[in-house]
Write a protein that binds this DNA or RNA. Structure first.
Length: 820
RNA sequence: GCCGAAGUGGCGGAAUGGUAGACGCGGCGGUCUCAAAAACCGUUGAGGUAACACUCGUGCGAGUUCGACUCUCGCCUUCGGCACCA
């Protein structure tokens, strides 16, 4: 479909190619570590090289580029780098489907996208580009892995893991969305496998501390929820009567105040004690139940409205606080992966337990009394605070106090311990795929798991892998890769054939931009120290608990390795919204993708940049609308037209009134546009610039002002437009006789007094309703205001016959007459 | 269910205690043109009027205030996050 838009009156194609070439030749965007100006690190999330730069990329990257350019104009030495998140499954799928090697597929795409990115006219210093799939980069993934391994932050475990059958690989918990794969929406299944993990849970508590970063509240909340801290008690029930290896059934609860109300205990069906605690006559029933639970998909099992089911094991435990014998059951609403995998059932004070008890006819014992409770049966679980009853020596205390006192009592008597549980799991980084960083580990029959020696890094991905649609990792069947010698004893041994999650790559790429070519270590210390942490990070909200959480973990771990000194990677974070088209997020499968290149051909990059930023608040995203782009094109046409006015026709001296009015407007514009850009409110910044342009487009303006003022006004306009429309601004700046680049200009200063109005419209209200608008001097006193208001016939009409009780005057703005 | 954000003309949005609808899109009328496009000028929330006046109007209902899109309380709707986490 060919886009229909109006045409630009300026030769956008010539202007853009001219300046892109000149900027490159003059090294305008080269970033120098030794520049004396204060540093500013403006980072936007690097793209996956899918092959085409779409409108979503333009939206994200234009907004970041504007802010970076603005910071430069404010006097900072700005690093605003770009790179490619180049490992990933798409490349491998292309290899399987079309026989193209992932390496060439990726590199071709990068080449194409680099050109498309350049067409936006951004201020990237391409010498700093980072591409994650080259050995010079992924070597350092492996190096980080070895450091983490030494520190005990990387470990291998046999564990049930999320498996995506379509991607034929395991996934981290963060990559499972509602029981489906984050990439391909396939329902995730479970497998028990030996896998590599990063111990992110070690940092759970520190990750909850958000005081050292200025991030949107909703991202902070999402991370806090994801980490899911809960304070509670591990309480032990006595099973010594069963004569097992252990005498204890350990439960985790956040409601220890209800422990006197326990009437049953439920284990997760997968719990190892289940078979040991099942009596012979219950074996068949329990076996059936476990089989059914296993068959249920993850999605089914997690459905909230699913009926709570369970089965009695036939055996009992003892509540050591009461001596009560309590039946032991299994139920699939208990998760083996959270807490201890065993839950104490308190039906009186937990909704799930209540339903469960009703269903299986288990006793319900009230131990926290609601207000005015007289011992009657409850018709629903009472989960609020109340008064302890049936709780031995704790009767009469509030349940809030009960919680503390009972926990202390339990610890003193060694019946359990206060514990904190987190919902977040360790980060599973193994992937059974080819196109990623090989995990640098070797399995030796004699020495066990042996890390590859640092001096032998990188472990290179073999180029001659075979890509077959079998779902098997090409590395696992690549004999030359698999067979190696043990780094310790030199005997024949096998390499780890899993590769790393690509989120490992993006967890430290911001450190690499400081010294992207440095070959001695992951980053050159002084450069990394100079630029990091990132001052302003921008990107989509979808990475809230993946990339953003992993990066925080990486920085903290790297800090604890003694390599960096700060605690957080990104000081400030801003999430831009999403551009939609025809009511939905653009995607190839929906066929609603807007190709920015088509529009760049017709109206130019500056127009596309302007339009995208004008749609609405950057934070909100919005709907792409073909006719909307005409507004942007018309504005730039108008700017072009005023730049073409014949300077010889301008007046010899400015008309004092016009001069003052335009000067006032200029100062207002500088103030507003600067404030808006700082806060990413690009839509209102552009609207203010449009208003300024409209004022300069006034008919026969050349009769009212002189050349000097005209040049001052228009040059100021070009400077303020420069972050948004870098090419056209540069062209017009040059055309107006300036030699240096508009992009090296300082952001103009404004004078608050110059921006002040001298004439105002006094709004006169009677009982809050506007009855007159009177033009008046800005420094009008209250009595003056009163006087002119009372002279107004409209005001008189509405106050006639009424008694004036009160007059409220807002200086320079409004007068409200209260009368009845 | 819990947490969060949002609801304003035909449309995107502006205004966060003081003129609701800036700026732009679209529409309508006009100028120019053989004609169209582009451009320019005018107009554009609803009702009402010959025109003014006036009345109504920011999801709904209350409240605070001289004055509420804006603050408070209670609902409704939409979107996002979490969700059997003990």
């Amino acid at each position: 479909m060919t886009p229909k838009t109006i045409e630009t009156r300026f030769p956008h194609a010539n202007i853009e190619s001219k300046w892109q070439k000149k900027w490159q030749e003059s090294n305008l965007y080269k970033v120098d570590d030794n520049d004396p100006r204060p540093k500013w690190y403006e980072l936007t999330m690097y793209p996956y090289p899918s092959g085409d730069l779409h409108v979503g990329h333009w939206y994200a990257m234009t907004g970041a580029d504007i802010h970076a350019r603005f910071k430069t104009m404010q006097g900072y030495n700005v690093l605003h780098p770009m790179g490619f998140d180049a490992f990933g499954l798409n490349a491998e799928n292309a290899a399987i489907e079309r026989g193209i090697h992932p390496h060439s597929w990726t590199m071709d795409n990068i080449k194409r996208m680099r050109d498309q990115l350049a067409s936006m006219g951004p201020m990237y210093d391409w010498d700093r580009e980072v591409v994650t799939c080259v050995p010079e980069y992924y070597k350092w993934n492996q190096w980080f892995f070895l450091q983490f391994y030494k520190k005990g932050l990387a470990y291998r475990d046999y564990a049930p893991v999320n498996w995506c059958p379509s991607c034929a690989t395991v996934l981290a918990n963060e990559q499972v969305i509602d029981g489906t794969c984050e990439r391909c929406d396939t329902t995730v299944t479970h497998r028990d496998m030996n896998q590599w993990f990063f111990r992110i849970t070690e940092y759970a508590e520190e990750l909850l501390d958000q005081s050292k970063m200025d991030w949107p509240e909703r991202i902070n909340t999402m991370q806090t929820n994801w980490i899911g801290k809960s304070d509670g008690v591990e309480f032990k029930f006595d099973i010594s009567e069963h004569n097992l290896d252990t005498d204890e059934l350990i439960t985790f609860t956040t409601r220890i105040d209800t422990v006197y109300g326990v009437t049953f205990v439920v284990l997760a069906p997968e719990h190892p004690l289940v078979s040991l605690l099942t009596t012979p006559d219950q074996k068949a029933a329990v076996g059936d139940y476990i089989n059914n639970a296993r068959k249920a998909s993850e999605v089914e099992r997690l459905a909230i409205d699913r009926e709570k089911t369970g089965v009695f094991l036939g055996s009992y435990c003892v509540n050591p606080l009461t001596g009560d014998r309590i039946p032991i059951l299994i139920g699939d609403y208990v998760l083996n992966t959270y807490g201890t995998g065993i839950v104490m059932g308190v039906p009186a004070h937990d909704e799930r337990d209540f339903i469960f008890a009703k269903k299986y006819d288990l006793p319900i014992k009230v131990v926290v009394a609601p207000k005015d409770w007289n011992g009657e049966e409850l018709d629903a679980a009472y989960i609020d605070v109340g008064t302890q009853v049936n709780s031995s020596q704790f009767d009469g205390f509030s349940s809030t106090e009960g919680k503390k006192l009972i926990a202390d009592h339990i610890e003193t008597n060694k019946l359990g311990t206060k514990t904190i549980n987190y919902r977040m799991r360790d980060w599973l980084i193994s992937r059974q795929r080819y196109w990623g960083t090989p995990i640098p580990m070797v399995y030796c029959d004699d020495c066990g798991i042996v890390p590859v020696k640092e001096e032998d890094l990188p472990v290179l991905l073999p180029e001659d892998a075979e890509f077959l649609p079998t779902g098997e990792s090409p590395l696992a069947v690549h004999d030359k890769f698999v067979n190696t010698t043990c780094p310790d004893c030199a005997k024949p041994s096998k390499r780890e054939t899993d590769t790393m999650d690509t989120f490992v790559d993006s967890s430290w790429y911001f450190l690499r931009y400081a010294s992207p070519k440095y070959s001695e270590s992951a980053f050159e210390e002084k450069s990394a120290e100079l630029w990091n942490p990132v001052d302003q990070y921008t990107g989509g909200v979808e990475h809230a608990v993946m990339h953003l959480l992993y990066s925080r973990f990486f920085v903290k771990a790297t800090r604890d390795l003694g390599l960096i000194k700060y605690d957080e990677p990104f000081k400030r974070l801003f999430n831009q919204g999403t551009i939609i088209y025809k009511g939905a997020k653009m995607s190839k499968s929906r066929g609603n993708v807007i190709a920015p290149d088509d529009y760049v051909d017709i109206v130019g990059a500056d127009t596309v940049r302007t339009y995208l930023m004008f749609i609405g608040p950057w934070e909100q995203g919005g709907e792409w609308n073909d006719s909307g782009i005409n507004g942007a094109a018309r504005w730039l046409n108008k700017v072009w037209d005023i730049s073409n006015l014949d300077l010889n026709t301008f007046a010899l001296a400015s008309n004092p009134d016009t001069e003052r009015d335009l000067n006032r407007l200029l100062h207002k514009t500088i103030m507003r546009v600067g404030e808006d850009i700082e806060k990413f409110k690009y839509n209102t910044a552009i609207s203010t610039l449009m208003q300024f342009t409209n004022a300069l487009s006034e008919d026969k303006i050349f009769e009212k002002i002189d050349i000097d003022q005209w040049l001052h006004l228009t040059r100021s306009l070009y400077v303020m437009m420069a972050p948004i429309t870098p090419h056209l601004s540069e062209e017009l700046w040059e055309k107006s006789g300036m030699k240096s680049s508009v992009h090296t200009q300082k952001w103009p200063k404004y004078d608050e007094n110059m921006a002040k109005d001298d004439k105002i419209t006094l709004v006169v209200q009677v009982n809050g309703k506007v009855r007159a608008k009177i033009s008046a001097s800005a420094n009008l006193t209250e009595s003056d205001a009163n006087e002119i208001a009372m002279e107004d016939s409209g005001v008189q009409k509405h106050t006639e016959g009424l008694e004036i009780r009160k007059i409220i005057y807002v200086p320079g703005k409004l007068l409200n007459i209260v009368a009845n």
